[in-house]
Computed example of a mutant assay.
Amino acid sequence: MEHSEITPAPIVNGLSVDVEDWFQVGAFEDVIARDDWDNLALRVEDNVARILDLFDAAGVKATFFTLGWVAERAAPIMRRIAQSGHEIASHGYDHARVFNFDRKAFGEDILKARKILEDTTGQRVSGYRAPSFSIDQRTPWAYEELAEQGYSYSSSVAPIVHDHYGWRDAPRFAFKPLSTSDLIEIPVTTAILGGKRVAAGGGGFFRVLPYAFSRWAIRQVNTQDQRPAIFYFHPWEVDPDQPRVPGAPVKSRLRHYTNLDKMAPKLTKLVEDFAWGRMDLIAFREAALATELDSRAFLKTVQVEPA
């Protein structure tokens, strides 16, 4: 009897959307005041609807890391996300970076956001992503607070060097930051190029660089590392008609507006080329592989004292 080769199932990668509107991004925080947000056009509902249509057409499920502030003002689209089988997770209340909080204020922020998200959608929230990937060597207490509040996973670390964020010495793949909890951290994806880590998990890098780079990077992670890639983007990135912000720094404008018109077609190709799933599914599967790592002990190995 002839034996045919069995093709292994493709690795399921983590697909995520950071749900915030065009005026809430870190790049514009010095030119758009928080107090002015309610006076600006809310475009996130229409953009999320486009994303849901794209995901439905591709037959994929994803995680929507959502600001509590957005959920308060866009309840119908939040309910559609949940009813479509996607995961609702927390992105904090109003996009304040974790390293600008103390532990008490951080705890209040994630508690407030979680209550809004759960009350709005009826879905339990078990995942968290820090705005601007702002959990790093300054905030070991953030994991303790997340664990205390019952979160099962975080995806809040970018293990690279970047001018706005990054924890260069953090592990590339899932790790357990606390010896006293099953909480796991799932960093956003990096690839290895020329012996160095490079950002490869989406956002502006995906918009600006040729699609071939992202395809190569995800394949590297799936085939060489045998791990899932973690990809993210924002609703405003599929919105080329969004308002332009006067007075924003040139660098910020370049990062924010470049290739907005190309984002949706690239996303369509991405979701067709790879297998994708919700982050809670990835967390469940990665839990068995996560490196056990006490964050305070880890900080000592990189010679940075906890805040």
Rank of each mutant, 00 (worst) to 15 (best):
F106H: 08
S181N: 00
A248N: 09
V188I: 12
I110W: 02
K196A: 10
Y257P: 09
L67D: 04
I192V: 14
F175S: 02
D280K: 11
I282Q: 13
Q303C: 12
G194W: 00
S154A: 10
P265I: 14
E185I: 02
R296I: 04
A307S: 15
A71W: 10
A174Y: 02
K266I: 02
S154E: 05
L254Q: 12
V31W: 01
K196W: 07
D36C: 06
W236M: 11
A275N: 09
A288F: 13
R285Y: 15
R207V: 01
S154Q: 04
K112S: 09
G202H: 00
I192Y: 14
S252T: 07
P306K: 05
A130P: 02
D36M: 11
A174T: 00
Q83P: 07
Q149P: 06
L52K: 02
G166F: 01
W69Q: 05
G204Y: 03
G127Q: 01
R73L: 11
I186Q: 02
P210Y: 10
V25T: 12
H234D: 07
K266M: 05
G26A: 10
A49M: 14
S155M: 03
T268N: 15
G127L: 00
M263S: 14
A49N: 13
G127H: 00
P249I: 08
W236A: 11
A158Y: 12
V250F: 15
L270Y: 09
L267D: 03
F213M: 04
D273C: 09
A41L: 10
P159C: 05
D261M: 10
A41F: 03
K176T: 09
I32V: 09
N222Q: 14
T139P: 01
S214L: 12
A58N: 09
G85F: 00
V19F: 01
Y211H: 09
A58W: 07
S179W: 12
F64P: 04
D109V: 01
I81Q: 01
V198R: 03
S295M: 15
F106W: 08
F173L: 13
I282E: 14
H234G: 02
G14L: 07
F23V: 05
Y128V: 00
A200K: 01
R79T: 06
I51W: 11
L146C: 03
D225S: 15
R80F: 05
A82Q: 06
F298D: 06
A75S: 13
L40Y: 10
E305I: 08
A89K: 00
P228F: 06
V17N: 13
W167L: 08
G107W: 10
E148L: 10
D56E: 14
D18G: 02
D169Q: 15
A199T: 13
S214G: 09
P171R: 03
Q220P: 06
P235L: 07
S252V: 09
P131Q: 03
L67Y: 08
R244T: 15
D56S: 15
G127F: 04
Y93L: 03
A290N: 07
D273K: 04
D94H: 12
P171C: 02
S84C: 08
F173H: 13
W37I: 02
F233K: 05
A130K: 00
V98L: 08
V19M: 01
A158Q: 04
V271M: 11
